[in-house]
Simulated assay, not measured.
Amino acid sequence: MAIAPPDAIPNPTVPLSLGGEARLAEFARLKKARQRREALIEGLLLLAASVSVLTTVGIVYILIRESISFFSHVPLWDFLTDTQWTPLFDDAHFGIWVLMSGTLTSSLVALAVAIPLGTVIAIYLSEFAGHKTRETLKPLLELLSGVPTIIYGFFALLVVTPLLQKIFPELPGFNVLSAGLVMGVMIIPYVASLSEDAMRAVPMSLREGSYAMGSTRFQTAVNVVVPAAFSGIASAYILGISRAVGETMILAVAAGMQPTLTFNPMEPAATITSFIVQVALGDLPHGSIGYQTIFAAGLSLMLLTLCFNLAGYWLRKRFREAY
């Protein structure tokens, strides 16, 4: 049976009283009007999708422009190899590894908490919890991500640090350990929620095949579901890493903001984000070397985050091909 082309199908909005040529002309007019509307909608959607891209391009442009001005006064080699960070002193030093060490140490402490706990919670919610339990616990878990980070910072300073000092009496009042532990608790909802979504997306046929082979629920979860969902779980880990690297207020309140080159979490330290906050709230004139340090530090932070995102993309691609 032959099917009439779309243009030959009568349009119900065209009056039947019109003649043949008039009906065709009216139909063509309505078709052009519909195409204009669709083109307008497509343009609006493209504009909305371009907002994030243009914003990222604008941020990168500002960081690079100001950083070029900064590196015209400070050699890149000194920036990468100096072991002191005192850009606001008369004897200025610009060793970014001082801030990088605090950023990496606090992030590692946070991830040591968030990744294991978040993964275990995701496995429980996806494979063991009942429907009512899941629908109750998951919203409660995600409430943690809605708590302001400044509250986490004071919680780390006033509650976690005194508790840790009972275990480690030599622990100073400001330290990376308490800030990192609380930051890990804050990141748990991101890791757990996205990992649980990835595990729930695994086809039920894989679970049924595992059960048919005699595997237990735990064996199925660990040996079948987690490997099959690892590309999504890796995305959750990368989001958690990016969240930890970019955290500001917890570290500004509880870590001490003392720029020392150390990887010991039981000492105070400064991070890139806490330094940016410190300078941004000061009275440094725009265009000065001290002011431009925040752009060089921000560019370093963006490159660090980019490296983590590229590593996560590689992991997702590798495991997606494997499974």
Rank of each mutant, 00 (worst) to 15 (best):
211 Y>C: 02
208 E>R: 11
214 G>A: 11
267 E>K: 14
274 S>P: 09
234 A>W: 00
230 F>D: 00
236 A>E: 04
252 A>L: 15
252 A>F: 15
250 I>D: 00
203 P>M: 09
244 A>M: 03
273 T>W: 04
252 A>Q: 13
213 M>G: 02
269 A>V: 11
222 V>I: 15
207 R>V: 12
224 V>G: 08
245 V>K: 04
266 M>A: 13
274 S>G: 08
203 P>D: 14
234 A>G: 13
249 M>N: 12
215 S>V: 07
261 L>E: 06
267 E>Y: 04
255 A>S: 14
258 Q>E: 06
262 T>L: 07
222 V>P: 00
238 I>K: 01
229 A>F: 04
265 P>A: 10
245 V>P: 02
268 P>M: 10
271 T>E: 00
242 S>C: 15
263 F>V: 14
208 E>Y: 08
269 A>I: 01
243 R>P: 10
233 I>F: 03
239 L>Q: 12
203 P>A: 09
235 S>T: 15
213 M>S: 09
250 I>R: 04
258 Q>N: 14
214 G>W: 11
238 I>M: 15
222 V>H: 09
264 N>L: 09
274 S>K: 07
225 V>S: 04
206 L>C: 03
225 V>H: 02
202 V>L: 09
265 P>E: 07
216 T>V: 11
223 N>D: 14
213 M>W: 01
273 T>S: 12
207 R>H: 10
262 T>E: 05
244 A>I: 02
254 A>C: 13
236 A>N: 08
220 T>A: 13
230 F>W: 10
230 F>K: 04
203 P>W: 09
201 A>E: 14
221 A>H: 00
246 G>A: 15
229 A>D: 06
254 A>D: 05
204 M>W: 06
274 S>Y: 05
219 Q>F: 01
209 G>W: 04
230 F>A: 06
217 R>E: 10
268 P>C: 08
254 A>R: 02
234 A>Q: 00
256 G>R: 00
225 V>D: 00
264 N>R: 11
251 L>W: 00
213 M>C: 10
233 I>E: 02
213 M>A: 08
263 F>H: 08
221 A>D: 01
249 M>K: 10
254 A>E: 01
238 I>L: 03
255 A>I: 12
254 A>V: 09
240 G>P: 04
219 Q>D: 11
220 T>D: 11
267 E>F: 07
202 V>E: 05
243 R>F: 10
253 V>C: 11
217 R>H: 12
272 I>C: 03
265 P>G: 09
218 F>W: 14
258 Q>V: 12
243 R>Q: 12
255 A>M: 12
263 F>C: 06
